[in-house]
Design a protein around this nucleic acid. Structure first.
Length: 244
DNA sequence: AACGCGGGCAACCGCCGGATA
DNA sequence: GTATCCGGCGGTTGCCCGCGT
């Protein structure tokens, strides 16, 4: 965690690295209510951050199934190949690399792969007939890309819902509606403000698998994760926040 | 041991496009 | 048609850390 100065003073938007406490607040809030409006979210979640900052933190670091750490050789090869085809379309590339955020891919490109690609290009220009080089780059270009994965995690709440319902319909229309969690707070009448850290830490467990009846027909629906379920749950409990 | 430097990465900034009133 | 809001995206910044001298 990068240390940074804190500017959290009465109404001042805080910038810089996120603390563990802030992460917990954001995670707990989104797991429970989803991200219905990024701009208003920090106020309800008790965070002195901009909505954009919250969104970025969630997308790049906190959301479930996000991968951190070293890229595999295969992932790097895919990035190089995708960059050849797409250019700097980091978000599109991210669709091909499950668990990797566009920011992470972009960083990886700038810190490692850009140089590698430039060196490779120079070698090819200098020694165009070198069989080994040709073989190497042909090999990379032949990597069979998977179809981009439609990631519900990078979509809006409403898209999440349509994703969910489309999937369930196409899977045979099994009744899979999760059981709503008993909320102790009413989202629309009560700001979601934390009173102390003990509450925050306990809220990490707000959304346990036992709160819902997971569908048995599709294992990967579970992987769609708690966030989708919580969004759906909020929808079922409170209706569409954009209509009400 | 102290210092400088560059790499790595998280986070910010500004712009753009879509949706809505 | 226009203004406004919001989310998303890509470029950029700035801080930390490890390594070399």
């Amino acid at each position: 965690m990068v240390k940074t100065p804190s500017f959290n003073k009465n109404g001042v938007i805080k910038k810089g690295a996120w603390s563990e406490d802030e992460d917990n607040k954001l995670r707990a809030y989104i797991q429970r209510y989803g991200h219905w409006n990024w701009r208003l979210l920090p106020e309800f979640a008790g965070l002195s951050r901009s909505g954009k900052s919250c969104r970025l933190r969630w997308m790049n670091y906190l959301r479930p199934n996000i991968k951190h750490g070293n890229f595999t050789t295969e992932e790097e090869d895919i990035i190089v190949q995708l960059h050849n085809k797409l250019g700097n379309k980091w978000s599109e590339m991210a669709a091909y690399l499950p668990g990797r955020s566009d920011n992470e891919i972009k960083n990886r490109w700038h810190t490692h792969l850009k140089k590698r690609a430039q060196v490779g290009q120079r070698v090819l220009e200098k020694e165009p007939d070198n069989a080994n080089n040709k073989e190497k780059f042909v090999k990379i270009s032949e990597i069979k890309l998977q179809q981009p994965i439609e990631s519900p995690l990078s979509s809006s709440s409403s898209n999440l819902l349509s994703y969910f319902f489309n999937r369930s319909n196409s899977e045979g229309s099994v009744e899979v509606r999760p059981q709503p969690v008993e909320h102790t707070h009413n989202f629309w009448t009560e700001p979601f403000l934390w009173e102390n850290d003990s509450i925050i830490s306990s809220c990490d467990n707000l959304f346990l698998p036992t709160d819902l009846d997971y569908p048995a027909f599709s294992k990967d629906m579970i992987m769609v994760d708690e966030f989708l379920w919580s969004s759906l749950n909020s929808f079922l409990q409170y209706g569409d926040p954009f209509i009400n």
